[in-house]
Amino acid sequence: GSPGIQSFLPPGWEMRIAPNGRPFFIDHNTKTTTWEDPRLK
């Protein structure tokens, strides 16, 4: 199987799917959430 997208996120980050189907990202380091992919910064 191919590695999940989770493995490509920075340490402490998690990806979830919102009720509307959009992915969002949780930064457990700062306890914040964002719509922006942290890998694109």
Rank of each mutant, 00 (worst) to 15 (best):
L40N: 14
N20Y: 03
K41D: 15
T34H: 08
I5W: 12
T33H: 09
N29A: 09
P10W: 07
M15Q: 06
H28T: 09
I17W: 11
D37Q: 06
S7N: 14
T33K: 12
T34Y: 06
E36Y: 14
D27L: 02
L40I: 11
T34F: 05
F25L: 01
L40E: 15
G21S: 03
G4S: 10
R22F: 08
W35S: 04
L40G: 13
K41R: 11
E36T: 11
N20R: 02
L9H: 01
D27K: 02
E14L: 04
E14D: 04
T32I: 10
I26A: 01
F25N: 00
I26Y: 14
I17N: 04
P3I: 13
G1Y: 11
F24H: 03
I26L: 07
D37A: 06
L9E: 01
P3S: 11
T30G: 07
M15I: 08
E36S: 08
P11G: 08
M15N: 00
H28E: 05
F25E: 00
G4P: 14
D37N: 03
L40Q: 12
G12R: 05
T34A: 03
T34S: 08
F25M: 00
E36P: 00
T30D: 04
F24E: 05
L40P: 10
M15C: 11
F24L: 08
T34D: 01
T30F: 05
G1N: 12
M15S: 03
Q6W: 02
Q6R: 08
P38K: 01
P3Y: 08
S7R: 12
N20E: 03
F24D: 00
S7Y: 12
P3E: 13
T32N: 07
I17H: 07
P19V: 08
G12L: 03
P11F: 13
M15H: 02
R16Q: 07
P38A: 01
G12M: 05
H28R: 06
H28Y: 09
L9R: 01
P19D: 07
I17Q: 06
P19M: 10
I17M: 10
I5T: 13
P23Y: 12
F8E: 15
P23H: 10
K31L: 09
I17R: 10
G12V: 01
F8G: 15
G1S: 12
D27R: 02
G4L: 09
P19A: 12
H28L: 09
F24I: 09
T33P: 02
